[in-house]
Design a protein around this nucleic acid. Structure first.
Length: 609
DNA sequence: GTTAGGG
DNA sequence: CCCTAAC
């Protein structure tokens, strides 16, 4: 079982909202979300629980007076998929009404103080948490708790359970949970005006990812009850948001435009999103500005403050209410036969390890990391009255420390990557390169097929082979050399846990210096194809190496050319064999010449009548 | 989506 | 490695 902590539920840069692996793959295949089983959901919840985010027990079966899916376009959702726009804050079946109310109030107060405002929407028969226990877990399909020691395999329910991050829920004042008046949410809102147990049925206006107008409106018009403002908490659930809008808001010109244009030429589209299905990338793009930042930080400014600010530039203050942090994601693997208690331990260890190494806060403005700590808020733009700006905070492990033990480098035994790094087909990750051969064919070439086939999508894939049958563009065979088919070894087998680096929202990608073997492959490909055909180079030599984009390859080539021109003493990092650099220079010169010839030819052709 | 080029 | 313009 692979658990994926989804606490970085936000847009998280350009990353897929995290969700259990099975869920993700199931969705990719268009399968119903109900494929997620109890165990995953349990684990999913547990992770959240460890982070202290879930406090409320949900058991909608007791909500006789609770709005249900009626009027919620239930039919539009796959069977078993409870729209994640509904959150329940309710009691156990055994909880008396009085106790329930008291507990609810307590939790309301507690939650007001929480930094993380996260909630789940769950299937009615889903998992939840005990109100009184805070982090106690209830996983059931019949209101039966799963006790520690229970084999998780027994938790399976025939009834599909879906549990997702809830885009938002309402938390109330000390007076208890209240539900906003339906008029605040459009006519279709089925919620009663008030009730003791808050049930948030979403509509367009309050969805986590919507275009600005409605979003802001609903945000600003958060209703007040007994003088207390009810705060809407958004925990963006972009995937579903996008789904919903894709289905229900066809004439969202602004929406669509935003999605298409917001980052059309984005570098992120080339790099950071490279593992994200294109459609979803777009959706995230669109979600980002609209929901993410605003869901994290609400800027507070009262009229007096504004007045002061306008009257003078001195002592202007920015008040921020941090509503949630993004926290690092964790990947955990644990056998199905593990007990719940051991899962808890494992999760706790993971969390402790991550946090124990120390964390710091990162600041994101419009998804971009604010790196210069010395800048003033004004300089960064935070201090302006820019409510539309997206300001976010992240919790990040100290980057100066070694990678988490749950990651690359020192994986714990439970980790899938632990074995992967060492034993992909029994070959070490850093094979020797045979430079004695004419064209530096690699020693492991014969194992190419195996390596190629072994690429597991769960990992950052190993480099694919250069296909022996790759057509050599014989038609315009200007290739400098004709090389035998060559294999690129798995130099950087990056395990799935490496992805946890992605929690560094808005950060640079992790630096991954090119190995000699990769350089070898790159040089070979460029020798053959020439520079300027980076996509082909990518496909030919780095097809399955997802962390190497064609832009990376282009950049690397640029660097290689530069490196080849400078003296060896000035070079840094892993030394590229001089022989290889000479090939770089040769290829560079050759293709430059070809370029000139081509241009000259074109000119000549143009001059000709 | 790709390519080129500056940072 | 990041970012953007241009295509």
């Amino acid at each position: 079982m692979v658990l994926h902590n989804s606490l970085d539920y936000g847009f998280n840069g350009y990353q897929m909202p995290s969700m259990p692996r099975a869920t993700r793959s199931a969705r990719r295949k268009g399968a119903s979300r109900s494929k997620v089983d109890d165990k995953q959901m349990y684990a999913f919840n547990l992770l959240a629980s460890v982070a202290g985010n879930l406090l409320l027990e949900r058991n909608p079966t007791t909500l006789s007076d609770t709005p249900t899916l009626k009027g919620h376009d239930q039919d539009k959702y796959p069977s078993g998929f409870f729209p994640d726009v509904i959150s329940y804050a309710t009691m156990n079946t055994s909880t008396s009404k009085g106790v329930a109310e008291t507990l609810t109030k307590q939790k309301a107060i507690e939650m007001k103080n929480l930094v993380n405002d996260v909630d789940f929407a769950t299937h009615p028969k889903s998992c939840g948490h005990n109100l009184d226990g805070g982090n106690k877990i209830t996983v059931n399909d019949k209101s039966e708790k799963v006790m520690s020691g229970t084999d998780m395999a027994t938790c399976r329910s025939s009834d599909p359970v879906v549990c997702d991050w809830n885009p938002h829920m309402w938390i109330g004042s000390e007076n208890g949970f209240k539900v906003p008046s339906s008029k605040d949410h459009g006519p279709q809102h089925p919620c009663p005006t008030t009730q003791e147990v808050g049930v948030r049925n979403d509509d367009n206006s309050s969805f986590g990812c919507i275009y600005p107008t409605t979003s802001r409106n609903s945000f600003r018009k958060a209703p007040c009850i007994r003088g207390h403002r009810i705060r809407k908490i958004l925990a963006s659930k972009n995937w579903n948001v996008a789904t919903k809008y894709g289905a229900e808001r066809p004439k969202t010109g602004g929406y669509k435009r935003k999605f298409n244009f917001s980052r059309r030429n984005s570098y992120k589209n080339q790099r950071s999103q490279m593992n994200i299905p294109f459609k979803k990338r777009k959706l995230f793009d669109g979600c980002f500005r609209d929901c993410n930042g605003r869901s994290i930080v609400e800027k507070i400014s009262d009229s007096n403050e504004i007045g002061r600010e306008s009257s003078g530039h001195q002592n202007s203050r920015v008040k921020l209410r941090i509503k949630s942090f993004r926290v690092p994601e964790l990947f955990i693997e644990i056998p199905e036969t593990a007990t719940v208690s051991s899962l808890k331990r494992t999760v706790m260890e993971a969390v402790s390890t991550t946090i124990g190494r120390g964390i710091h806060v990162g600041v994101l403005l419009r998804g971009k990391k604010v790196r210069d700590d010395n800048k003033t808020l004004i300089q960064t733009g935070i201090s302006h009255d820019n409510q539309d700006e997206c300001l976010g905070f992240t919790l990040e492990p100290h980057s100066s420390k070694a990678p988490s033990s749950f990651c690359h480098g020192e994986p714990p035994p439970t980790f899938r990557c632990s074995s992967t790094l060492e034993t992909i087909n029994g070959y070490p990750p850093n094979p020797t390169v045979d430079h004695s051969g004419n064209n530096s064919a690699l020693l492991f070439e014969t194992h190419a097929a195996k390596l190629s086939n072994s690429t597991d999508t769960a990992y950052e894939p190993a480099p694919s082979l250069v296909n022996t049958a790759v057509e050599e563009r014989s038609s315009d065979s200007k290739a400098l050399v004709t090389l035998p088919a060559m294999a690129v070894e798995t130099l950087t087998v990056v395990p799935v846990c490496q992805k946890s680096k992605q929690y560094e929202v808005g950060h640079r990608r992790m630096r991954r210096p090119f190995s000699v073997t990769e350089v070898e492959a790159l040089v070979h490909a460029v020798e053959t194809l020439g520079p300027g055909r980076w996509r082909d180079v990518k496909l030919r030599a780095f097809d399955n190496v997802k962390h190497r984009t064609y832009v990376d390859l282009k950049d690397k080539w640029k660097t290689l050319v530069h490196t080849a021109k400078i003296s060896p003493r000035q070079r840094r990092g892993e030394q590229v064999p001089q022989q290889l650099l000479e090939r770089v220079l040769t290829a560079h010169a050759y293709w430059s010449q070809q370029q000139h010839i081509k241009h000259d030819t074109q000119k000549t052709c143009l001059l000709l009548p």
